[in-house]
Amino acid sequence: MADEEQLRRLDSGALKALAHPLRVRIFDLLSAHGPQTASSLASMLGETSGSTSYHLRTLSAHDLIHEVEGRGTARERWWELPQGRIDIPGPSQSMSPANRAAAQIVSSEFFRLRHETLMSYVNRPDIEVPEGWKDAGLIATTLLEMTPSQMEDLKDELMAVIDSAVARYRGQTGPDVRRVSMRTELFDLPSTGPVLSDATDSNEEES
């Protein structure tokens, strides 16, 4: 698929450039809210526009973001993320110590922001939920017994669903369109003893 062809694996230079909490936050805001200026990002972050401009230039130097063509002025530039997916490697023993430290900073900050966003959604008062969106979301946890190959198959099925949604909805505009975060989590739990055949627990919550 087109998006699979656009998958970019970050090299050590780009990974180190991203390895700053404020840059991760800027990257996340551009992903969540679309194109922004240094001033608009400064307002969201409680920083100065000089600070956000510096970090935007650093991200741009490693092609992590780029300037929006035909928008803005020489004094007020707009920035956005490139199309496609970015593979951000987690810390690995095969990395150099510097790259491993950078990967740890980036992954830790991304997951912190991810949890923060999820909890904001969970705790949002009903009065702040737009009309028609109250029961549109889903938070589900299901525990299963699987083999590694079965989990690989399920992962492929979930990615196919994601790819299909991206192909249908990416770039959609309209009066009822809002930015939506679609999350998929699938991982094995630490072993605490033998798995019992009746140990499956399923809990699903709609919010």
Results as ranks from 00 to 15, higher is better:
Asp3Ala: 10
Arg8Ala: 11
Arg8Lys: 14
Leu10Gly: 01
Leu10His: 00
Ala17Tyr: 00
Ala17Asp: 11
Ala17Met: 09
His20Ala: 04
His20Asn: 12
Pro21His: 10
Leu22Lys: 08
Arg23Pro: 00
Ile26Gly: 02
Leu30Met: 02
Ser31Arg: 14
His33Glu: 12
Pro35Leu: 01
Ala38Trp: 00
Gly46Leu: 06
Gly46Trp: 07
Thr48Phe: 03
Thr48Val: 05
Gly50Tyr: 04
Ser51Asn: 09
Ser51Leu: 05
Thr52Asn: 03
Tyr54Arg: 11
Leu56Phe: 02
Leu56Asn: 03
Thr58Lys: 12
Ser60Gln: 12
Asp63Phe: 01
Val68Thr: 04
Gly70Pro: 06
Arg71Cys: 03
Arg71Ser: 06
Gly72Ala: 07
Thr73Ser: 15
Arg77Tyr: 01
Trp79Glu: 00
Arg85Trp: 06
Arg85Pro: 00
Asp87Thr: 03
Pro89Arg: 02
Pro89Asn: 05
Pro89Asp: 00
Ser92Arg: 12
Gln93Asn: 12
Ser94Arg: 14
Ser94Gln: 14
Met95Gly: 02
Ser96Val: 15
Ala101Val: 05
Ala101Tyr: 00
Ala103Gly: 04
Gln104Ala: 14
Gln104Gly: 15
Val106Asp: 00
Ser107Thr: 15
Ser108Arg: 05
Phe110Arg: 11
Phe111Lys: 06
Arg112Tyr: 03
Arg114Pro: 01
Leu118Pro: 05
Met119Leu: 11
Val122Tyr: 08
Asn123Asp: 15
Asn123Cys: 06
Ile127Gly: 04
Glu128Lys: 04
Glu128Thr: 06
Glu128Met: 11
Glu131Trp: 12
Ala136Gly: 14
Ile139Asn: 12
Leu143Ile: 11
Leu144Gln: 07
Glu145Leu: 14
Met146Cys: 10
Met146Arg: 12
Met146Val: 06
Thr147Phe: 02
Pro148His: 09
Pro148Asp: 02
Pro148Glu: 03
Leu154Trp: 10
Lys155Leu: 10
Asp156Gly: 11
Met159Thr: 11
Ala160Trp: 04
Asp163Thr: 09
Ser164Arg: 14
Ala165Phe: 08
Ala165Trp: 06
Ala167Ile: 01
Tyr169Asn: 09
Arg170Asp: 08
Arg170Met: 07
Thr173Asn: 07
Asp176Asn: 05
Asp176Thr: 05
Arg179Asp: 10
Val180Ile: 14
Val180Glu: 15
Arg183Gln: 11
Arg183Leu: 10
Arg183Gly: 07
Thr184Tyr: 13
Thr184Asn: 15
Thr184Glu: 07
Glu185His: 13
Leu186Asp: 08
Phe187Asn: 09
Phe187Pro: 04
Ser191Met: 09
Ser191Gly: 14
Pro194His: 08
Pro194Glu: 15
Pro194Thr: 08
Pro194Ile: 13
Asp201His: 14
Ser202Ile: 10
Asn203Pro: 00
Glu204Ile: 01
Glu205Met: 06
Glu205Asn: 10
Glu205Trp: 02
